[in-house]
Design a binder for these strands. Structure first.
Length: 492
RNA sequence: CGGGGUGUGGCGCAGUUGGUAGCGCAUCUGGUUUGGGACCAGAGGGUCGCAAGUUCGAGUCUUGUCACCCCGACCA
């Protein structure tokens, strides 16, 4: 069992990796670039899923499922889209194995070559739009609002646990609308759902904005994003929502008959968040003692640790714990009693801290005598001795305070590391210090590219929320006129 | 795909001028412990990434090869 997490200051990347592994969220799999999500990590992902799913359904979205395999020919339909993904696709060429005639295990049966290769989906736009063609005939069939929870594969050169794995879990929503306005509204609506989820469930402050043309999704007319700041000052794109215009409708010939009897191409959006959110959770809130989970996502919100010497003490403590557990569960909290008798209390404290459990309750002989419990907060690492009588209400209130505090702490960190910048010299040093810089930009791809080449910084977004940016000025690099500031940062 | 690094019990590592493999953690057994990651005693576990070569002898030297990690380019 791990004893400590490497300090963040030394090597953030190493710190992050250690934490993800030691908190028991995931491990490297035997397959290059792929990970095993362990039960504790998956429990957090499941909570994310169920909360997001509920939010989607409130807006009329329905879940569906489309195939993992996409015929290669589908990819030739949308030129820009395919260019964006071509370099990272896994391809299925055969459908059968056979025993090696030379006795070396099994080989791919050369006779089982597929007539048309199948691509393992890197995203499902193509297969879904080829299906939507059959679903859309009339204006009465619109809008189509579908989401699927699935895995996708992108054969990345370099991988990082949760942040960039060859296979990852996500949800992808794909909608079809009669008008451009409606589709654009949908894209905005979803990015706001994501921001709501990030802020209120993940306790993660995010900036909503447009991607610059350079950073847009392959095939999109507009990409909306939520950008979060990690504790090393780098930006993480936490979710995206795309207005796809009629590109996919035209490529896959999805037309409907409007009220005047005319054929019209539909307008599309797509939007998604992935297990990268797990990485965001780790990097935004974790500390040197381990994970810090916001109560809204913690699979275990309260852990109870008994401290005893004799069987009599143990029995008395368990009685208190059992009734407190019921009381807390009645208030909607998930509770675990850590009754393992092979481990000492100190070990358990450290272990549950590593796993980020928001509240810990310890009860020993001293407390039995005085009718109290010791309540510890994971977010502040503080302890208080509280009367056992009615402690469930205290904890119920505390849980909201913890959720709020984790958000406030992350927001304070971001506020301290985001600043306006109008000098190119200052830009070059501050961007390396892990700052988000609000700068004027002339709106050209050339300038953005030059800044990226010189500093590795990219435009994370053109904000439409969280930070005020509408003002006249001059481009930080080219000096040309600009009407608003954009967010520059180095990103994951 | 370019640059750098590492491969030795489950994990983390040591191994000198070549001499037949060791430490910490973990595991198992017994006992004492239990309010912040316990201690003592004992035990099990490795053809040193793989393949050739040099040598009486290779974890160590040579060549080849494979895998993984880090930094770039690419991305949710």
């Amino acid at each position: 069992m791990a004893k400590e997490v490497t300090s963040r200051a030394e090597n953030y990347s190493q710190w992050y990796n250690d934490l993800a592994l030691k908190a028991d969220l995931a491990e490297q799999s035997a397959v290059r670039g792929c990970m095993v999500i362990k039960p504790y990590g998956y429990a957090i992902w499941e909570k994310m899923q169920s909360i997001l799913d509920g939010m989607f359904k409130k807006t009329g979205v329905q879940n569906a499922y489309f195939p993992l395999f996409i015929p290669k020919s589908f990819f030739s339909r949308e030129a820009e889209h395919v260019a964006g993904f071509a370099k990272e696709c896994a391809v299925v060429t055969h459908h059968r194995l056979k025993n090696d005639p030379d006795g070396n295990g099994v080989i791919v049966d050369p006779d089982a070559r597929l007539e048309e290769e199948l691509i393992v989906r890197p995203t499902s736009e193509t297969i879904i739009w080829s299906t939507y063609k059959n679903w859309v005939k009339s204006w009465r069939d619109l809008p189509i609002l579908c989401n699927q929870w699935c895995n996708v594969v992108r054969w990345e050169m370099r991988t990082r646990l949760f942040l960039r794995t060859a296979e990852f879990l996500w949800q992808e929503g794909h909608t079809a609308h009669a008008t451009a306005e409606e589709a654009e509204q949908e894209a905005f609506r979803m990015v706001n759902v994501y921001a709501d989820f990030a802020r209120n469930v993940m306790a993660l402050p995010v900036i909503i904005g447009h991607k610059s043309p350079n950073e847009r999704f392959a095939g999109a007319l507009d990409t909306l994003t939520i950008e979060a700041m990690m504790q090393d000052g780098k930006a993480l794109q936490a979710g995206t929502s795309h207005f796809l215009g009629q590109n996919f409708a035209k490529s896959f010939d999805v037309q409907y008959t409007d009220k005047e009897g005319k054929q019209q191409y539909v307008w599309a959006t797509s939007w998604g968040v992935s297990t990268r959110l797990m990485g965001a959770l780790i990097m935004a809130h974790g500390d040197d003692n381990g994970l810090v989970l916001p109560p809204a996502l913690a699979p275990i919100q309260v852990v109870m640790v008994p401290i005893f010497k004799t069987d009599e003490e143990h029995a008395a403590i368990m009685e208190k714990f059992d009734s407190l557990k019921s009381a807390l569960e009645a208030l909607g909290h998930s509770v675990k009693i850590d009754d393992r008798d092979t481990l000492r209390p100190g070990f358990k404290f450290a272990e549950w801290e590593l796993k980020g459990v928001p509240v810990r309750i310890a009860l020993g002989a001293r407390d039995l005598a005085s009718g109290t419990v010791e309540v510890s907060r994971r977010d502040t690492l503080t302890k208080e001795t509280v009367a056992l009588e009615g402690v469930e209400q205290y904890i119920h209130t505390l849980m909201d305070a913890i959720q709020k505090n984790i958000y406030e702490k992350a927001l304070a960190f971001r506020t301290a590391n985001i600043q306006k910048c109008d000098s190119w010299e200052e830009f070059k040093t501050e961007i390396q210090n892990g700052k988000f810089l609000l700068c004027h930009w002339d709106g050209t791809v050339e300038t953005e590219q030059k800044i990226k080449d010189e500093t590795k910084a990219t435009i994370r977004c053109i904000p439409i929320d969280s930070v005020v940016c509408e003002e006249e000025g001059k481009d930080i690099y080219s000096g040309k006129p600009s009407h608003r500031r954009v967010v520059f940062a180095i990103s994951y």
